[in-house]
Amino acid sequence: MLTILFDGISTGMLLFVLAVGLSVTLGLMNFVNLAHGAFAMLGGYVTVIAMQRFGVPFLATLPLAFLIAAVVGVILERTLYVRLYGRPHLDQVLFSIGLVFMAIAAASWAMGSSPQNIRLPEELKGRFDVFGVGIGRYRLFLTVVCGVLAVALQLVLSETRFGSRLRAAVDDARVARGLGIDVQTVFALTFAVGSGLAGLGGALGAEILGLDPGFPVKYMIFFLIVVTVGGSSSIVGPFLAALMLGIADVGGKYFVPEIGSFVIYALMIAVLIVRPNGLFARPGR
């Protein structure tokens, strides 16, 4: 029972790291980026390739996954995404679906369409008992890493100069520009970090979410749920939403496997009907 709760929490934390970048893209640039999952998939494959072809140890591949996803993110942002800010949402949807299609085809061309396995290091395998609660080592590792990242993000946002600039730009890009904030650079940097985190999440999540070319579509709705249910005005909302989603998903699949993800979709629709701007959005302005 508590094991399931713990598994749910670790899945939720992972989802948060995966989706937090999307929440910022949406909140900051009002950009509907359905291709966010492609960056996550990229991170996952970076880890797979680094481990299988170059024998890099698992832990050492993680920064690599972050970096490469971030670099690809910033390149795409500067060359393509930037042209679509302010365009109708339909254009953004079409554009990012196009990217998803390309990413899926490219991944199955380069890596084959079968799911990839990641061989975890021995010390992260297995479970141990704490007061009768079975805790997977890897799950614990995930929770710690993602928890640290979440706290760090919150600190960066609330305590640093960059954070305050970012928040100013989220609130009102025009005013921020007037204050002399280089919104473009803030955009690019944020996009890079968001993509990087997705890449890291993809690498971390390959073990429990699976990794195959269909990844960007399979988890697209999960990321979107985190963002829309959590609201995009802060990262606390998405964090709570991700936790709820993780627990509901793991719990739902364990207790009522016959209805599977049904509950999650139904819940999301219910939430959006009652609170179209998300559960944790600031009411009004």
Partner: peptide, 25 residues
Amino acid sequence: LRGADLTRLMITLGVASLLYEAANK
């Protein structure tokens, strides 16, 4: 009917996913 573009995207996507899941199960 309610909400902005994004909410609508999510709802339409959600309804379709819901039906997919239902048909699957």
